[in-house]
Structures are given as C-alpha cells and as structure tokens.
C-alpha cells in the first residue's frame, strides 16, 4: 500500500496515471466514432439505434462505462493538481520569457483545451446521455440528434470543441507515450504516424456529424420538430 501511495505522490506517478487514462479515453473515442459513423447509413438512424441498444444491454460495456467516467475524472483532476503545482514553481516571473520560441502552442494550452473539452462533455452528456438513459419520457438518440443539431450555434460549439479536442490530442498523444517511456528512436516514427490519425482524422470525423446534420438532414429535422 505504501508503494502505491509513493507512486501517486511522485510527479512521474501522477503523469503515468494521466497518460494511461488519456490513452484509455482515446480508445473510447475510436469506439464512439465507429458508432457515430453509422449515422451516415442514412437509414433514419435504424442501425445507429440498434448499435446503441446493443451497448446499453451489454453488462461488460456498462461496467466499462463506469471505468470511463472514472478515467475522465482522474484525468481532469490530476491535470488540475499538476497544473496548479507547476504554477507554484516560479513565484518570481521572468521579465522576458520566450517560451514560444522553443515549444509548440499545443503543448502549452492543454489545460485550456482540456477545460473546454470538459465543458463540452458536460453539455454533451446533458444533451444525449442523460435524456436517453434517465429521461422521464422515452426518446430515441436519433430524434435528439435531429433536434439538437438543427441549432446552428449548438453545431458551431460542437465543431469548435472537437477541433480543440484535436489540438489537445496533438500534444497529448505523443506526450502519453513519452511519459510511459515508449518514445525512443525505435517507436517515435510509429507514434508520430498514429498521432496524425488520432489528433487530426478522428476529431475531424466527429466534427463532420453536426455539420452533416445541419446541412443535409434539415428536412427530416423540420418534420420531427413539427411532431414534437
């Protein structure tokens, strides 16, 4: 028990926990995207709903869901703790500090992009997770998607938040491997190759969904709004 506490107390231990939770959340993103791409089947959400029903009825998935929420909280909490402690290390600031000459912007803004993603997550869960899982009246995810994504401001927020997620991962993905000690001459080219998929393609694919629904599913949306 003592050694576990020592691990948590050390700066590297905290960072290893951040990298593991971060990578786990990236795996979740892949799974989430696979489900979301079913929306492009253009079958009135039939396949998407079936996929969702399968997930909800699967006890393994429901267990992992708890781990997922825990991972988000651990990742966010440790981020705030490390960020706060790191800020205490230089009480007297430099008169002139050209950090930007030496470091990419993405590496210096993870706390900001991460905070926006956290706010996005709360709104996203409130929009879709809570009503479909705990809502008083039965409502399908697909109907909710049509309703929510009819609002251009809501869509814009989604696109911005998802692009910031990409920017967060631009630093975070390679950073996780560095912290786990896996970035070396042998693996760095592979990690950098995968990084492009993770930070660019995955968030971009997510961001196309609100755009697609706003511009190409408006008609269906209007019909539904009439019903409700």
């Amino acid at each position: 028990m003592n050694s576990i506490l020592a691990f948590y107390n050390s700066s590297i231990g905290k960072k290893i926990m951040m990298s593991l939770t971060g990578l786990f959340l990236i795996i979740f993103l892949v799974e989430h995207l696979v489900g979301n791409l079913l929306l492009y089947a253009n079958d009135g959400g039939h396949m998407f709903e079936a996929y969702g029903a399968f997930l909800v009825s699967n006890p393994v998935i429901r267990t992992i869901e708890i781990v997922l929420f825990a991972a988000v909280l651990v990742h966010a909490l440790l981020a705030v703790i490390l960020w706060y402690r790191n800020r205490q290390t230089r009480p007297d600031k430099y008169e002139l500090y050209r950090l930007k000459d030496n470091t990419p912007l993405a590496s210096r803004t993870t706390i900001i992009t991460g905070s926006v993603i956290f706010i996005f997550l709360v709104i996203h869960l409130d929009s879709f997770f809570l009503p479909t899982r705990f809502g008083a009246e039965k409502v399908s995810s697909y109907e909710l998607i049509l309703m929510k994504f009819a609002n251009p401001w809501y869509d814009l927020f989604y696109v911005v938040a998802l692009l910031l997620l990409g920017y967060h991962l631009k630093h975070g993905f390679q950073s996780a491997f560095q912290t786990l000690g896996l970035r070396n001459r042998k693996y760095t080219p592979l990690i950098d190759g995968l990084a492009f998929i993770v930070w660019f393609l995955i968030p971009l694919a997510f961001a196309t969904i609100p755009v697609y629904f706003y511009f190409f599913q408006q008609a269906t949306s209007a019909v539904l709004m009439g019903v409700h």
Binding site: S10, S11, I12, R85, N102, S107, Q178
Partner: peptide
Amino acid sequence: IEQMDKEGFGACSNNYACEA
C-alpha cells in the same frame, strides 16, 4: 525522483523547451 519532487521542481509537461 523523490528528491527532485521534494526540492520543489515541477512536473514535466513534455513540451521539450529543455532540449531546445
């Protein structure tokens, strides 16, 4: 590492300013 943390040095955020 224990001593490094005790001295009050911060945690690494992998932005590699040090290498530069």
